[in-house]
């Protein structure tokens, strides 16, 4: 393996392994690798926080970072534009065992994903979610009372992304 492959693999290694670097780098490389790994992880975690702000608010920072870190370690970034990172996060968050007792998180993530992809013409522009999802999403973002916000799986609502005067907004259709 050449040194580019070795360094790239060491940065991405979920278990933090760096044995190959030991044979290829001058002494003292450990601090450098730690820097590169942390920069990689936290750049992408911060990007997820920017792209899924409602999920961040709903889970609070520590919990969000826990799941975001798990997502980053399982999903590489394929686009040079870091702001693109997060495809599949809404599906991922819905599958997390620890969040099974928080069924509202998945709809919130899907609405955040709708906004994240607002400039992507190939992305869907409306989604069907449990009734009350948009109201809950707005309540979290506007810091209003969410105590009476319950989602209704039996009564779905269609949420659409609209554009007017270069501004994006979400509506029920």
């Amino acid at each position: 393996m050449n040194e580019i492959e070795i360094l790239s693999s060491a940065i991405l290694a979920a278990d933090g392994s760096s044995e190959a670097l030991n044979n290829n780098c001058k002494p003292g490389y450990e601090q450098g690798l730690k820097h590169y790994r942390n920069h990689y992880l936290w750049s992408l975690i911060d990007t997820l926080a920017n792209n899924f702000p409602t999920v961040l608010k709903a889970l609070s920072e520590n919990n969000f970072n826990f799941f975001a870190r798990r997502f980053v370690l399982q999903n590489n970034s394929a686009s040079e534009n870091i702001d693109d990172f997060g495809d599949g996060f809404a599906t991922f968050i819905a599958q997390q065992q620890e969040l099974m007792n928080l069924p509202s998180i998945s709809p919130l993530a899907q609405i955040d994903a709708l906004l994240m992809n607002r400039f992507d013409n190939s992305y869907v522009k409306q989604i069907d979610l449990p009734g009350g999802s948009l109201a809950l999403w707005k309540a979290i973002n506007e810091h209003t009372d969410i105590n009476n916000s319950e989602l209704d799986d039996q009564q779905l609502e269609t949420i659409a992304l609209k554009v007017e005067d270069d501004e994006f907004y979400l509506v029920l259709v």
Binding site: E3, I4, E5, L7, S8, I11, L12, Y36, H39, Y40, S43, L44, N76, S77, A78, S79, E80, I82
Partner: peptide, 17 residues
């Protein structure tokens, strides 16, 4: 520097030999 390998973008400026 290199910034990407095996289609994995590192979003960083990485050294090489």
């Amino acid at each position: 520097c290199f910034q990407k390998h095996n289609n994995n973008c590192h979003h960083d400026l990485l050294p090489f030999a």
